[in-house]
Design a protein around this nucleic acid. Structure first.
Length: 276
DNA sequence: CGTACGACCTGCCCGC
DNA sequence: TGCGGGCAGGTCGTAC
C-alpha cells in the first residue's frame, strides 16, 4: 500500500489517537522484518509519553518524552491497525503496541519488508534510515531550484530519479506514474533533458497529485485500509496506473495505456500524451 | 561516486 | 484441483 499519501493518512489517524498517551507494553510476535528487531531498544519507549507524530518521506516518526523515537516504515505491504482486542490475532500481525487493555495498535505486514525501530533523538538524522533521505516531496525544501539541481547532470530516466528516495522522498510507483502522466512527460525521458518548463510542471503535478491522494485517504489496492478501517479512494482517479490496455482519459486522446518495464518495475503511460 | 540488478517475503491470479 | 510463473504500493547490498 504505502507511498506518501497512504503513510500520511496513517500518520494522521495515529496522531489523532495516541498523542499525549503512553504505550503500556510492546508485544512482539515476529522479530525478523526487513531488519532483525531490536527488542531491547523497543522496550525503551514503554511507559513514556507520546508528544509528537510526524512523517518524513515514507517513514512515520513517533516522538516520546524520554527522547526516544519510534520509527515505522510500512514497506510494501505493511499496515497499522487499531484493534480493541488482540486475542483474535490475524495472520501477519507482528507487533502490538498496547495503549490500554482495550486499545492496541497492530503492525501487520504479510511480506515483512517493513521496519520498526527505536532510535535516540540525537541520533535520528544520522541513523541508517534518515541519513541519506532526500527532501520530502511535500516539504517547502522541495523547491524548483532543488529539483533542478537533482536533475542536472543525471542521465538516468526521470522515472528512476523520482523513485530514488535519497533525492526526493515519498513518491512510489503509483504516484510517479500518475505525476508523469499529468505533466505529459515520458517515463523514459532522461533527467538532464528536462527544460525549465518541464521541471516546473512536473514539480507542480507531483504535489498536486499527492495532495489530492491525501484528501482521498490514499489508494486502496488489495484491501488496504487506514488504521481505523477506512478505504482510500484515489484508485478511482488513476489515469494510467494499473490501466494497461484501457483508453487514455484525456479527452480527444483515447489511445491505449501502455505498460512496460523500467528497471524491473512497471511503468504505465500514454504514448500520445507523454511525448515530452 | 552513480547505476543496475538480484535478493528479501508472502499472496494472488492466470494458464495449463 | 494442483502447480508453475509472473506479478505486487519498497529498498538494501553487491558488483561494476
Amino acid at each position: 500500500m504505502p507511498e506518501l499519501p497512504e503513510v500520511e493518512t496513517t500518520k494522521n489517524e495515529l496522531k489523532l489517537i495516541i498523542i499525549n498517551k503512553y504505550i503500556d507494553k510492546i508485544l512482539i510476535f515476529t522479530d525478523s522484518l526487513r531488519f532483525q528487531l531490536n527488542k531491547k531498544n523497543l522496550k525503551k519507549i514503554e511507559k513514556s509519553k507520546i508528544i509528537k507524530v510526524i512523517r518524513k518521506g515514507k517513514y512515520i516518526l513517533i516522538f516520546f518524552l524520554n527522547n526516544y523515537i519510534l520509527l515505522i516504515h510500512l514497506g510494501m505491504s505493511g499496515r497499522l491497525i487499531f484493534k480493541k482486542e488482540i486475542f483474535n490475532k490475524t495472520k501477519h500481525d507482528h507487533i502490538v503496541l498496547r495503549i490500554k487493555k482495550n486499545f492496541n495498535i497492530i503492525f501487520n505486514d504479510p511480506r515483512k519488508f517493513g521496519i520498526v525501530d527505536v532510535i535516540k533523538k540525537d541520533l535520528l538524522l544520522n541513523s541508517r534510515y534518515l541519513k541519506k533521505l532526500g527532501v520530502d516531496a511535500l516539504s517547502k525544501k522541495f523547491s524548483y531550484k532543488y529539483f533542478e539541481n537533482v536533475l542536472i547532470n543525471r542521465k538516468t530516466n526521470i522515472k528512476n530519479i523520482l523513485l530514488n528516495q535519497s533525492l526526493i522522498s515519498g513518491l512510489g510507483n503509483i504516484y510517479v506514474c500518475e505525476s508523469l502522466f499529468e505533466a505529459g512527460i515520458s517515463p523514459f525521458k532522461l533527467a538532464n533533458s528536462l527544460n525549465k518548463k518541464n521541471i516546473k510542471i512536473l514539480k507542480n503535478k507531483i504535489q498536486k497529485v499527492l495532495k489530492k491522494a491525501i484528501k482521498l485517504k490514499g489508494s486502496s489496492i488489495n484491501d488496504y485500509k487506514t488504521p481505523m478501517g477506512i478505504l482510500g479512494s484515489f484508485q478511482n482517479n488513476f489515469k494510467v496506473y494499473n490501466r494497461e490496455g484501457k483508453s487514455c482519459k484525456n479527452i480527444y486522446c483515447g489511445k491505449k495505456i501502455i505498460r512496460t518495464i523500467i528497471s524491473g518495475r512497471s511503468a504505465y503511460f500514454c504514448k500520445n500524451c507523454q511525448k515530452n
